[in-house]
Simulated assay, not measured.
Amino acid sequence: MPAVQLLGELDTVLNGLSSRMREWYGVHFPEMGHRVREHSDYAKIIIKMGDKENITAQGLMEMTLKKKDAERIEEAKETTVGADFDDIDMRIVQEYAQRTLDLYQYREDLISYITLVSNEVAPNVAYIAGPVLGAKLLEKAGGLKRLGMMPSSTVQVLGAEKAMFRAIKSNARPPKHGLLYQHPYVNGAPRNRRGNRARSLAAKIAIAARADLFSGDFIAEELVAQLVDF
């Protein structure tokens, strides 16, 4: 699915743009960086408030920042080591932040599209894996037909092909999971239980893919209920 590939490329681009945005505005107000975790929120602050002197705790809380972080940011204005920006400097930074935020908003539109297609093509897989991860699995497998014919052991390590090749070549331990690590059922588990959870999740996704491919029956809720809490 081209949209899934685009999402991955877009995430890479956004990480680079966001890092540059933080670095640039950080020259003006470096203390704000570690208090605003989301890149999109950081961009919104630059666009709406611009100069650090315009930043207030009330304004930040209206933009959904926590009260503690908002107050600390406002306090930091008084002792900041940041440099002043001329009007033209600030305008360019704000335009840059706006372009970056536009891409974040487009990313949300892209995710909505992927969700729509994933739910339509493979509703059982989308329900269990989540629509975006489900779409990634379909893309990596080469389509629903190929995913539906895969054993669960292969589904478990989809996306970890390079690690699997290195393990075979060096007689090391094979990877316990690939793309499935992105699922909260796996990444939310203690490290020593992630392999078991990835195996259990892969088994349910394999069954879900076969249901989507052959019968079309919606059995995902039943499969999710069978996931073991290792």
Rank of each mutant, 00 (worst) to 15 (best):
E108C: 08
M149E: 10
K145T: 09
A141C: 10
K145I: 04
G143K: 05
S152D: 06
M150S: 09
S153Y: 09
Y127H: 13
T154C: 06
L158E: 02
A122L: 04
K169G: 00
S170I: 11
G143Q: 06
A126W: 01
Y113F: 14
L158A: 08
A129W: 00
I168H: 08
F165P: 00
L110D: 05
E108K: 13
K145P: 00
E139M: 04
V132P: 05
Y106L: 11
K145N: 08
P174D: 05
T154D: 12
G142F: 09
V155L: 11
N119W: 03
R166F: 15
I128W: 01
N119R: 06
M149K: 09
A167Q: 07
L110I: 09
I168Y: 07
V155N: 05
G159I: 01
L133H: 06
N171T: 00
V117I: 15
T115N: 12
H177V: 14
L116E: 14
M164P: 04
G142A: 11
G130S: 11
N124H: 08
A172L: 13
P123K: 03
D109G: 00
L116F: 10
Y127R: 13
Y127F: 13
P131W: 03
A141N: 02
R173L: 10
S153D: 12
Y106I: 07
L137S: 02
N119E: 07
Q156E: 13
P123D: 05
L147T: 03
E161C: 13
A122S: 09
M164S: 07
P131C: 07
T115Q: 10
E139N: 09
A126C: 10
P174R: 12
E108H: 13
A172P: 00
S170Q: 12
G143E: 05
A141D: 03
V121D: 03
P151V: 11
Y127I: 07
A126Q: 05
P151Q: 11
G142I: 06
R173M: 08
F165Y: 12
K176P: 04
Q156L: 07
G134A: 10
H177M: 14
E120Q: 13
A122N: 03
K176R: 12
R166Y: 15
I128M: 01
A172C: 08
G143N: 08
Y127K: 13
I168D: 09
L144R: 04
A135Y: 02
A172K: 13
S170H: 15
V117S: 08
V132A: 08
Y106R: 12
I111D: 04
K176W: 11
S118D: 09
I168L: 14
K140N: 08
Y113S: 09
E120D: 15
M150G: 05
V155T: 00
L133N: 06
L144A: 05
I111F: 12
L138Q: 03
T115H: 08
V132I: 15
G134H: 03
M164W: 00
E161R: 14
E139I: 01
S118I: 09
H177S: 15
A163F: 12
A129P: 06
L116P: 01
K145Q: 10
M164L: 15
L137V: 02
K169L: 14
S118E: 07
K162H: 15
K140T: 08
I128H: 02
A122K: 01
S112V: 07
N171Y: 14
E139P: 01
